[in-house]
Structures are given as structure tokens and as C-alpha cells.
């Protein structure tokens, strides 16, 4: 398999989740018959109360965990446990960088593991770092970066293989509001020019509505799909989008659905 082909600018993949349930250790049920169809190239946000099973779902899609029942198909292909999901990248809540490597060498890690030749690795890593606006910091170590910069490196590391499916688990939750909005805008721009499919888990309703084309709202544990809300905002979103009547209306709607979960 040629690496160049594997990491060429791809469009996204479709993901279909059919009746996925997850029971941990025989008694903690995290997911209850979740079904979702995500067309190629869509930006989907997942919202739900803390501890309901969002991370579990994301990990199952990534192949880091197995569903107890149900199935995951990527571009129609049934995913079996243990399959390598090339083309999928995962961004965790914290940056999880290798502290002994510089920014550049951190971003090179996925390419190294996939066996990309050195020269090409450098080029791709530099490009990914430029995309997240960190070209000045390539020689720095993670300990010398701010939290926001570290998260950018983490994002660049996920993007460097040109994934067709990007999974993010509350990636910017630990950052301040300003940095978070800044990164949201960058992520949006990256999604627009790569065409990858994005599944984004977040606690922030505003962030979900601002970023995505669609929001899936989950119930308290065990997570069931409560509502599946389309977000018909224009592709080009800016600071002003946040005061757009559509934005406000949908945020209110999501709020309403989520509120039922807390009061219940």
C-alpha cells in the first residue's frame, strides 16, 4: 500500500452506526441502541450530559473499544474489532504530546509509525504545523508551549496523515473561551478545505452549533439518541454567526432538549 495514496487529500468517509450498545463489566450500560448515519464530509457534534457515554461512542467508532452489540460501517465496510482504521485520527481532551520531542517531531509521529520516508515526513509535518499557525514554534518542546499551543500541535498531529475521519473528544474543553473560539474557527477552516468527516464531542452548546452542520443530543446514561438537529447555517461562519437568529434559535432548541435531561 502506497503511503502517498493513503495520505493524499481525501474527501471524507461515511460512518454508519447501527444499534450500537455498550455494557461495561456486565453492569454499567453506557450506550443503548444508538443509530446514526453520518454522510461523507459532514461535521457532526455530539452533545449529552457528563458520563452518558459520548467518549464511549467515539472510542467505538475509532476502533479503540468494541460495541457489545450493533455494528459500525465506514464507507459501507463493516468494521471488525482489531481492524486497523487507517484514515481515522483521534484528538483527545488533553494534548497528549510526547514531552521529549519538539513540536515538529511530535507532528511527525503518525507518519513515522506509518512508515513515511523522512523527507516527505518533514514536508507534511511542516505543512500541518503551518495550517494550525505554529510555524514559529517547531523547535520548541511541549513544556515550553501554552495550553492552546499544545492543543494546536495535537490537532496538527491528527491532521498530518490527512485523515478521512477526524474524531475529537472535547478537544478544547480545558482552554479559555477566547483560545477555544480561535481554535474552533481554525478547525472549521481546516474542515472546509479538506472535506473530511468530523465527529466532535463537546459540552458546549454554543460550540456545537457554531461548528457543525448537525448536532446529535444524547440522554443521560445509558446514552440514547434524544434529538438529531440539523443546523442550517451558512458554511462560512464568523463571530457574527453567533448572533444570527438561526444560531440563537437552534442553541435555544438544543438547550431545551438538554435541560429535560438535567431536570428529570
Amino acid at each position: 500500500m502506497s503511503v502517498a495514496a493513503e495520505i493524499s487529500h481525501g474527501t471524507g468517509v461515511s460512518v454508519s452506526i447501527t444499534s450500537v450498545s455498550k455494557v461495561y463489566d456486565g453492569d454499567v450500560q453506557a450506550l443503548q441502541s444508538v443509530s446514526l448515519d453520518i454522510p461523507a464530509g459532514q461535521f457532526l457534534s455530539i452533545l449529552g450530559p457528563s458520563g452518558c457515554g459520548k467518549s464511549t461512542l467515539l472510542r467505538i467508532i475509532a476502533g479503540l473499544d468494541e460495541p457489545s452489540t450493533g455494528e459500525i460501517r465506514i464507507d459501507g465496510v463493516l468494521q471488525r474489532p482489531g481492524d486497523r482504521r487507517t484514515g481515522t485520527a483521534f484528538v483527545f481532551q488533553d494534548a497528549h504530546l510526547l514531552p521529549w520531542r519538539t513540536v515538529l517531531r511530535n507532528v511527525e509521529v503518525p507518519l513515522e509509525l506509518l512508515g513515511t520516508p523522512r523527507q516527505r515526513r518533514r514536508e507534511l509535518a511542516m505543512h500541518a504545523i503551518e495550517e494550525v499557525g505554529l510555524a514559529d514554534a517547531i523547535r520548541r518542546y511541549p513544556a515550553q508551549l501554552s495550553g492552546g499551543m499544545r492543543m494546536r500541535v495535537s490537532l496538527a498531529r491528527a491532521l498530518v496523515t490527512r485523515p478521512k475521519l477526524l474524531l475529537l473528544d472535547e478537544p478544547f474543553a480545558a482552554l479559555d473561551e477566547f483560545t477555544r473560539q480561535n481554535l474552533d474557527e481554525q478547525l472549521l477552516a481546516l474542515w472546509q478545505h479538506t472535506g473530511m468527516t468530523v465527529i466532535f464531542v463537546t459540552h458546549s452548546i454554543a460550540e456545537a452549533v457554531f461548528l457543525s452542520q448537525r448536532a446529535a443530543v444524547f440522554s443521560r446514561r445509558p446514552a440514547r439518541l434524544l434529538d438529531d438537529i440539523a443546523i442550517p447555517l451558512p458554511a462560512n461562519r464568523t463571530i457574527e454567526t453567533r448572533s444570527d437568529p438561526v444560531f440563537v434559535e437552534i442553541a435555544r432548541q438544543v438547550q431545551q432538549v438538554m435541560k429535560g435531561q438535567v431536570d428529570e
Binding site: 486497523r84 487507517t86 485520527a89 483521534f90 488533553d94 497528549h96 521529549w100 503518525p110 509509525l113
Partner: peptide
């Protein structure tokens, strides 16, 4: 070793050897 990093290595199909050499030994340093 940071479990998230082990998972990341797993996701990119890292061999036992490269996980040891590039991840586990340096973090045990």
C-alpha cells in the same frame, strides 16, 4: 505510559517494537 498515547500508537498500527522504542522507553526514562 500514558494510555491515550498507547492508543494513539495503536491507532496508527505501531509495532510492539516501535511502541517500546518511541513511546514506552522514553517515557520511562
Amino acid at each position: 505510559t500514558d494510555p491515550a498515547l498507547r492508543e494513539m500508537f495503536h491507532l496508527y498500527g505501531a509495532s510492539w517494537w516501535s511502541t517500546l522504542w518511541k513511546l514506552r522507553l522514553p517515557s520511562a526514562l
